[in-house]
């Protein structure tokens, strides 16, 4: 991993270094997030992509230290935000960051909103939690924010409870809560996954506009490569607790370096694949207690050779802002040798 430039002007807004999450279970300790390093620069959208169980959501939760026991962030991990080490902050200082400088949007607006408070009150609550303003002023700002996120009749909607709002409306309220204090960073965990495609389209447009207009940065966690292509400037792909590839969005889709990324892109049904057998990634994502010690993708990889089973690949720098955790970066000639992976099993 290359060290980032340290001058203030180019320093990333958020820098994760070697973040590890351990969970003690009845059957032993697992490390579902294992040495993740990521930069989110000012004004950029970084997408964190991966399948269920890859550790992407857990990584997002480490940023605001929302993990709960038995999950623990290991010593040696570092999360710097606006020059401050978040992992060193006490609870009080952390609260000042949460919601104000860094805001989160969750997948399920129905469970993330409190059912006993009105939409307006929940937006106003965030304002009052961080700023000394009157109840009335907070509510005025809440209503204005609801209007900004495209809620019609914001004054009326502000008095309604979450169950009186549609899924799309609820997600807009979540967005209003997140944006009302103008955070520098928005962490959005599958913000549109629960929504229908036409409503998702509305929300994605709104998210992009809000992020651009405010110059905020966004860490967008998603499994949907379509959403990635529409929203992100850079992409980090996670597999089995590690970042396996990092690239500008155009390069990633045009020529993925890591075989896992390549497999994901190939497995998507699309206009060109009609009625043909889809490419698949054989086998299934192994559980954390069964992660291979060398390359974690080797068993499912169509290029794997001896080295992949004995030596864990580092996140190689491939130039042009691209990195991949794969020996192919050093031995590109091996790409010609495509064969059936070791795991012939099924998911």
């Amino acid at each position: 991993m290359t060290a980032p430039p340290t001058s203030a002007a180019t320093a990333p807004l958020l820098a994760l270094r070697d973040v590890r999450v351990r969970i003690r279970t009845a059957r032993g300790t697992i490390t579902p997030v294992d040495g993740v390093s990521l930069d989110v620069h000012r004004g950029e959208v970084l997408a964190l992509v991966g399948e269920s169980g890859c550790g992407k959501s857990l990584t997002a939760l480490t940023i605001l230290r929302l993990l709960e026991p038995p999950a623990r962030i290991e010593a040696g991990s570092s999360i710097r935000f606006e020059g401050t080490e978040l992992l060193a902050l006490d609870e009080r200082a952390l609260r000042a960051v949460r919601g104000r400088r860094i805001a989160m949007v969750f997948q399920e607006p129905m469970t993330a909103l409190n059912p006993v408070h009105t939409a307006g009150a929940q937006v106003a609550e965030v304002v009052r939690a961080h700023e000394r303003v009157s109840r009335r002023e907070a509510m005025d700002r809440a209503v204005a924010m609801l209007a900004t996120v495209g809620i019609p009749d914001p004054a009326v909607r502000a008095t309604q409870y979450p169950h009186e709002l549609s899924g799309g409306m609820r997600q807009r309220v979540m967005l209003a809560i997140a944006l009302v204090l103008d955070p520098a960073l928005l962490v959005a965990d599958e913000p549109t996954t629960a929504l229908d495609v036409t409503i998702q389209a509305q929300l994605l447009d709104l998210l992009r506009e809000a992020q651009r207009a405010r110059g905020a940065s966004m860490l967008l966690i998603t499994h949907d490569l379509g959403v990635v292509a529409e929203m992100a400037q850079r992409v980090a792909v996670m597999y089995a607790g590690q970042v396996v590839e990092e690239a500008p969005v155009g390069a990633l889709f045009a020529a993925p370096l890591h075989p896992y990324t390549e497999g994901l892109l190939a497995a998507m049904p699309r206009a060109g694949t009609v009625r043909r057998e889809l490419a698949t990634i054989p086998g299934t994502v192994p559980p954390p207690e069964a992660w291979p010690t060398a390359c974690r993708f080797a068993d499912r990889c169509p290029y794997a050779w001896q080295r992949c089973r004995t030596e864990a690949p580092p996140l190689h720098d491939a130039g042009d802002g691209r990195r991949a955790r794969c020996h192919l970066v050093e031995e590109p000639a091996r790409r010609a040798d495509r064969h059936a992976p070791a795991a012939a099993g099924t998911a």
Binding site: T198, G226, A229
Partner: peptide, 22 residues
Amino acid sequence: LLSAIPIPDPAAPRDRIVLAGD
């Protein structure tokens, strides 16, 4: 509906038919 599907191609055109409301 067809225009609302996110396309996994960063070079794809961005315009879509946005339906008002729910």
